[in-house]
Amino acid sequence: MESLLEVENITLGYSEDIDILHNVSINIAPSTITGMIGLNGSGKTTLIKGIYGFLKPKQGRILFEGEDITDIKPYSLIYKGIWYLPQDSSLFPYLSIEDNLYIPIKSLQLSRNEMKKRIKEIFEQFPDLGEKRKKKAGNLSGGQQKMLECAMVLLVRPKLLFVDEPVVGLAPKVATEMYERIVEFLHWGMTIFLIDHNVRKVIELSSYVYVMSLGRITSEGPKDHFEGELKQQVRHWLGL
């Protein structure tokens, strides 16, 4: 299988003596949604943190487009075309909506005209944000903050996007909009790695699914492997 990102036998943890992930390997194929499901505390977010450079793996390596990015600094991933939509807000609450958008785009060192063009397009797509562009991001509602995070993704246009629990705490209407946005990202040519509690939704959206339990990949396969009576299957995969 052709891979955009390959994680090979990663072992890592938050402290020297305790490992959270044990020999985890995953492949993310380009222009697809790859999903991951697992219980709370199974190590899904830790895996993203490891790939993103916030945690250093004790063993194993991470390849992006064939290049080893295992020890890369998080701030330089934007240049490689990797972006992270975390579970918690990653906005800067005391900065305006506009400034929040300018921070990543200024890192990309685009021309002034290109920057303005992209920002204009974003405000056309998200008119609510456009109207409030000078307001502080911290004053937005939870749903609006999530939309601002989505706006950032469209602004940066990464090759690979990590989406971690995108609908936690959101109203059902906003959650639906959020899933629509994820599909839209795919249509923009992005590759997506989706982590979510909503097993049905992950399987519906993803073309390949990983199941993680206690820091290990316990099952994996294309989406048709996961159709049928989900409840029993999930209980089995998760070792319940």
Binding site: Y75, I78, Y79, Y84, F92, Y94, L95, D99, P104
Partner: peptide
Amino acid sequence: SKIGLYLQSIRDDEVAASGRGVNV
């Protein structure tokens, strides 16, 4: 300028800033 935005992003959230391309 860009530098000012970077400094303020570090003030608001260092980890998020690092994830947004800021060399903290």
